[in-house]
């Protein structure tokens, strides 16, 4: 490949990365609206349970560590891609997928327990805003997992080209972003919620 085409490809990857970053920032604005709704409604329990009654902190701490670890393994996949080690990258991506799926299953278990106890989103304004905020994050995680499967298969079939590598970089960006949003959910919803 000639020098100019290489530069051209590199520029394309950089542009795609920036474009994706712009999307992430608009997503952040959407999350901020959900955070604002939660912050306003969190004391409106309508005679129902408050955060301190229903949140299980050690359980949520475990979820947090699982998601953080998945963010770390996702970073290791990026390192492998930069070293042109596709097989290793796919292994790390697989580990990220398993950790992400465990996180999602734990979150759904928690939702199921709340709903089974009669504390579903229709119980109070507090629970509506809680389910909307945490559920929106969970939905993003589910989309990320689906993307991981697709990007993994594509990279496996086509090998490590400029295009597949660029795709995996954006996926990693998305995953790290979701971990960052979760840190704020953990802090504002759970830690402050039980005080």
């Amino acid at each position: 490949m000639s020098e100019t085409t290489l530069e051209h490809h590199h520029e394309k990857t950089e542009n795609a990365r920036f474009g994706f970053w712009v999307y992430l920032m608009t997503d952040l604005i959407m999350f901020s609206a959900l955070f604002a709704a939660y912050a306003v409604l969190r004391n409106n329990t309508f005679g129902g349970p408050g955060g301190g009654d229903i949140f299980n902190l050690p359980f949520v701490l475990t979820e947090t560590f699982i998601l953080l670890t998945s963010s770390f393994t996702c970073g290791l996949a990026t390192v492998s891609i930069n070293q042109k080690k596709l097989k290793q990258a796919l292994w790390w991506l697989g580990a990220t997928f398993l950790l992400g799926a465990s996180f999602l299953i734990m979150e759904l278990t928690e939702f199921h327990r709340l709903i089974a106890d009669g504390n579903g989103p229709q119980r109070s304004a507090f629970l509506s805003s809680y389910f909307t905020l945490v559920g929106a994050h969970g939905l993003h995680i589910a989309v990320g997992l689906l993307w991981m499967i697709i990007a993994g298969i594509v990279a496996y079939k086509r090998g490590l080209t400029e295009k597949t590598a660029s795709q995996l970089t954006r996926l990693a960006l998305f995953w790290h972003f979701l971990d960052l949003v979760w840190i704020f959910i953990f802090t504002i919803v759970y830690l402050i919620g039980v005080l």
Partner: peptide, 21 residues
């Protein structure tokens, strides 16, 4: 990005989470 930078970020994040928890 290197392995080292991810490792530093990972360990620092664990400590910060525990420090808040």
């Amino acid at each position: 990005p290197t392995f080292k930078s991810y490792l530093i970020g990972y360990i620092a994040s664990i400590l910060l989470i525990l420090l808040a928890y």
